[in-house]
Structures are given as C-alpha cells and as structure tokens.
C-alpha cells in the first residue's frame, strides 16, 4: 500500500542519509590521515576498540554522550519550532554553576538539578523575550548571550566560587549531592539515565501533547499555525524554556555526575563546547529526540576513542580533532541543508 511505503521511507530516509554521511566522513578522515603519514586502519581500529571494545570504553562513550544529548535536545526542540537556538553553550555554564551553588547550600542532588533547571529557564528567557517582543534574531542574541555567560561564569569560577583548597577548580559538589555511578571506577553516572529520560520526555512533548503539536505547527508554518488558533509567540517562548531546561540539566549533571572533579575546572575546560557539539549531534539525529540518543552516543564514542587513537596509533590529538571535525561536517550537511532551505524559504 502506498501509505505504508511512504511512511516507511519517511522513517528510513533520514536514517540512511545520516549513515551515509558518517561513512563519507570516516572515508575522508581516512584520506586525510593517510596523506598525513598515519595508518588510517590502525587509527580507526584504535578508536573503535577504545570507544566500544570494552565495558570501560562503553562507560567512557556513554558518559561523554550524556551532556551532548541534552544540549542537542535544546537545539532540536527549537529547530522543530522554527528557531535556530544556539544558546545551549552559555546555558550549560550557568547550569553547572547553579548546581554547585545549590548543592553547596542544600547538599542534595535534587536541589542541584533544580538549580540547573532554574538556571536554564532564566538564561533562556532573554533570547526568547527579545525574539518575541523585539524581533531580535535568535542567532544574534544567543551568540551574544553565550559570550556574556562565558565571562560571567569565568569570573564566578575564578572569584566567588574558587576552591580554597585547590587552585585548579571551583568548590566541589558535596559527596551527598553527587549522582550515583552506574559502574564502579568509571565516569558513567545516573546522569546518562537522566539524559535518556530527557530525550524520551522531549519526544513525548513534541509528538504526543497539544503543546508539541503547537510547537511543530509553528515551526513548519507560522501563518498556518496562527490560522489554527495557535499563538506562535507562546510556542517560541515554550521551546526556548524547555530547551533551556535541557542545557541547564546538562551543566548540572556534568558537575554532579562526572568524576573525578565534581567541580568546574579553572579554565572551564570541562564544561566548554558541549553546547556547540549539541548542534552537530542534533543535526545528525535529524532533530529527533530518539535519533539524538543514537547520534549522541556516536559522538561520545568519537570523543572517548580519540584518546586511544593517540595512544595506540600515535595520531596526535590535533589530528584526531581534524578527523572528528570532518565526520561532524559530513554528517551535519544533510540536516543543515534542510534547515538552510527552510530558513531561505521563509
């Protein structure tokens, strides 16, 4: 039947496109490695073995996937509402800071998460309100807000929150407020389960609630949404808020559930970049929460395996990043292309 075929193809096609892009990325990466004088086969074997060749590898992969699944959800829910929200990065910083502050006040993981969620909501609001009431394009506002967040967070990290006992990091999340580990001796904590739950909840909101229907309708066609009795402004604010919550949680769980530091490092290196990685993860996952779980794990594997590529195949870390970058670009192209076409059409 025609209906079945078109349904299956609309389900399979994006998956195929993402898989082909991954293959292309891996191939180009191999060529670059080859021309730089390394053995691509050796390098990739090291990467795969390191990332998924052992229980420990898996734990590293999944813990690396955790924050970027959450930040990808931020991007995805706004993309579904027709918004290009790249403010996850700044929100992660404040989520982490709020979690440190709240857990130091209340010593309870629930409070840490509440802190992350509140920070996410608060830091999503400016861009949302500027968009809705002043027509400020969200790309501009979120880029600027990211920088404001970066330097504000840096000040807090180096100043008020500095750890009196360890000059390399902030105050730690107290032991009683840390998220339990899923595997002894690993970095994998309950945070991963929280990220998966967040993805499932996001999926449920988008496809099984009135709110999600209104978000998607606004994202596809604002005029038709307005005609359909939907207030697109309300939809935009909701998508920013839910997205903010996800990134806030990403920051919070990074400091509450990622050994060994349980704090923000002096230069914020351990919480930097997740917001931007999330955009790639979301595009590879075709802005679909369930797709994001898989693409997040794939990106996590790249991160986890990179170390082994360096140790076992002698590929310097810079080279590893080049290969990662190529894969990201190749993989993101179909999704990005769709999005560009949509924006141009508006």
């Amino acid at each position: 039947m025609k209906a079945d075929r078109s349904m299956i193809s609309s389900f399979i096609k994006p998956i195929m496109e993402s898989l082909i892009a991954v293959a292309i990325g891996v191939l180009i990466g191999a060529i670059v490695l080859k021309f730089s004088g390394y053995s691509p086969i050796k390098a990739y074997v090291a990467l795969v073995k390191g990332a998924v060749g052992s229980a420990y590898g898996w734990s590293m992969t999944l813990s690396a996937a955790t924050p970027i699944i959450l930040t990808a959800l931020t991007f995805a829910i706004s993309a579904r509402t027709g918004i290009f929200n790249i403010g996850a990065e700044g929100t992660v910083y404040f989520g982490a800071i709020a979690a440190i502050v709240f857990t130091n006040m209340f010593a309870n993981p629930i409070w840490g998460l509440i802190g992350g969620i509140m920070a996410g909501i608060l830091w999503a609001l400016p861009a949302a309100l500027l968009k809705v009431y002043r027509g400020v394009h969200e790309v501009i506002s979120t880029i600027m807000l990211n920088w404001i967040a970066f330097f504000t967070a840096l000040y807090l990290v180096l100043g008020p929150l500095a750890n009196p006992n360890d000059p390399n990091k902030t105050l730690e999340v107290p032991a009683s407020a840390r998220l339990p580990l899923l595997m002894r001796g690993s970095e994998l904590s309950l945070a991963f389960i929280i990220a998966i739950a967040a993805a499932i909840i996001t999926y449920y909101i988008l496809w099984h609630t009135v709110l999600g229907f209104e978000l998607r309708a606004s994202g596809y066609n604002e005029r038709a949404a307005r005609y359909g009795g939907i207030n697109p402004k309300k939809a935009i604010i909701w998508s920013f808020l839910i997205g903010g919550i996800m990134s806030g949680i990403a920051g919070a769980t990074e400091v509450m559930g990622r050994p060994p530091s349980y704090a923000i490092s002096q230069g914020m290196a351990n919480i930097y970049g997740y917001g931007f990685d999330g955009i790639g993860v979301s595009l590879v996952g075709r802005n679909h929460p369930i797709g994001i779980i898989f693409s997040g794990i794939f990106f996590g594997a790249l991160k986890a395996g990179a170390t082994y590529m360096q140790i076992d195949a002698g590929v310097p870390l810079e080279m590893v990043k080049v290969v990662q970058g190529i894969i990201v670009v190749a993989v993101a192209v179909p999704g990005l292309w769709d999005l560009v076409k949509k924006v141009v059409r508006r």
């Binding site: 449920y204 099984h208 609630t209 009135v210 709110l211 229907f213 209104e214 998607r216 309708a217 596809y220 066609n221 038709a224 949404a225 005609y227 359909g228 009795g229």
Partner: peptide, 27 residues
C-alpha cells in the same frame, strides 16, 4: 501545514478540543 499528516491537519484549529485530548494535555 503541508509537512504534517492528514490526521494532524484534520485537527488544526480544534486540537485543544476535549474530544482529542487526554491526561497531561496529551493528544
């Protein structure tokens, strides 16, 4: 909304109707 399904379009503008919604404002 051309990218949405026939079912989704069939309730555009009455999707909040109690007939189509359940607990937690689910559809």
């Amino acid at each position: 909304i051309l990218d949405m399904t026939v079912a989704e379009n069939s309730i555009l503008g009455l999707h909040w109707n109690a007939k189509f919604t359940g607990a937690l404002n689910s559809i």
